[in-house]
């Protein structure tokens, strides 16, 4: 495995990216996610504190870094509202670079067609760039809400990492709160992927590529961030996509992620330290040792397959679960 999980990206990265200019920090955003939306503003309050050590040798001003803010359109929820808010964010913080990508772009990433659309891939191999309707079809063919959420998150992550690479960014900042990380911890545990948690929820390198990930709001509870948005001035409320409480549907249509969200929102209310403790506990686990280049990786989520997949499988157990029953399930 890679031992260089460290907070100070600038110092620890053995091979700096070929970027001649000031390093680009990449701030991915999916506006449908409330916590992520808040992120951009929260960084402003503390960003110099947090990011300065990463910028060794770039101390020529208050900000030795540049933020590139990415909005991934995923077609979920109120897309027009989200786009409108994104414009507002751009307007409020004009000093950053912004870009927008549709989530379906992730389907064009190497290997995705083969895994997700095995039939099309052979016939009309990469003729056209995949459209949003292609993505909707793929998602609709999955048999459960959990699989859909899972694949959605996988693709989002892959696309963000890919964009960060193409923009030669040095780090990716995620807006996950402690509460969100705790939700992910239990959700991934329930999906049989707990072994990826140390790399998925820790600051530093990820198995997805050579752009390290950071979670600047990892020590904040969701409710704290919410309070913050109304306490700063100017108020951030107008920039935030309000999350409509989902109507109570049958458990069968809930995803594991949604269940964990509900669970931790109740735990957070009464026992906030327990939420933080879940994240801290998994943070203490070791990162699995990997022999680079030798070991096969899951074609969908890039985890090492050894011990986590059936023999000669190209997918890990977790991703097999995502795709299982797809053909028959309709």
């Amino acid at each position: 495995m890679s031992p260089s999980t460290t907070a100070s990206a600038g110092a620890a990265r053995p091979t700096p990216p070929p970027s001649p200019s000031a390093p680009n920090l990449y701030a991915p955003r999916a506006l449908t996610n409330m916590s992520r939306l808040k992120a951009s503003s929260v960084w402003r309050a503390s960003e110099s504190d947090m990011l300065e050590p990463a910028m060794n040798g770039e101390k020529s001003g208050r900000t030795g870094y540049r933020l590139h803010v990415l909005y991934v359109e995923d077609g979920k929820g109120d897309a027009s509202m989200a786009s409108k808010l994104f414009e507002l964010v751009k307007h409020r913080y004009p000093e950053h670079t912004y870009s927008t990508r549709p989530l379906s772009d992730a389907l064009a990433l190497p290997g995705m067609q083969e895994v997700l659309r095995p039939h099309q891939a052979t016939t009309q191999a990469s003729t056209a760039t995949p459209s949003s309707s292609d993505l909707s079809t793929i998602l609709a063919n999955l048999t459960s809400a959990t699989s859909r959420t899972d694949l959605h998150q996988l693709l989002l992550r892959k696309l963000v990492v890919h964009c960060a690479q193409t923009h030669t960014c040095e780090a990716i900042l995620w807006a996950d709160s402690t509460t969100r990380l705790a939700e992910r911890t239990l959700a991934e545990t329930a999906k049989g992927r707990a072994f990826t948690l140390p790399t998925q929820t820790r600051d530093g390198e990820t198995p997805l590529g050579d752009v390290p990930s950071y979670y600047p709001m990892r020590d904040l509870l969701r409710k704290e961030i919410l309070s913050y948005t109304s306490l700063v001035s100017p108020d951030l409320g107008s920039l935030i996509l309000e999350e409509k409480p989902r109507p109570a549907v049958s458990t069968r249509d809930t995803s594991i992620d949604e269940l964990m969200k509900q669970y931790f929102s109740s735990v957070e209310r009464e026992y906030p330290s327990i939420v933080a403790n879940v994240v801290r506990t998994t943070g203490k686990l070791l990162v699995e040792r990997v022999e680079e280049g030798v070991e096969g990786r899951c074609e969908l989520c890039d985890v090492v397959l050894r011990g986590h997949a059936p023999e000669r499988s190209r997918l890990c157990f977790g991703c097999i679960r995502i795709l299982q029953g797809r053909e028959t399930g309709g």
């Binding site: 998994t282 070791l286 157990f317 977790g318």
Partner: peptide, 24 residues
């Protein structure tokens, strides 16, 4: 969890075994 995805019980057990290996 079982109601949402019955397999997840074994997935949690498997996750637990994996995490046990990663306990320092």
């Amino acid at each position: 969890l079982e109601r949402i995805r019955p397999e997840s019980i074994l997935d949690v057990v498997r996750s637990g075994i994996d995490m046990a290996r990663l306990v320092p």
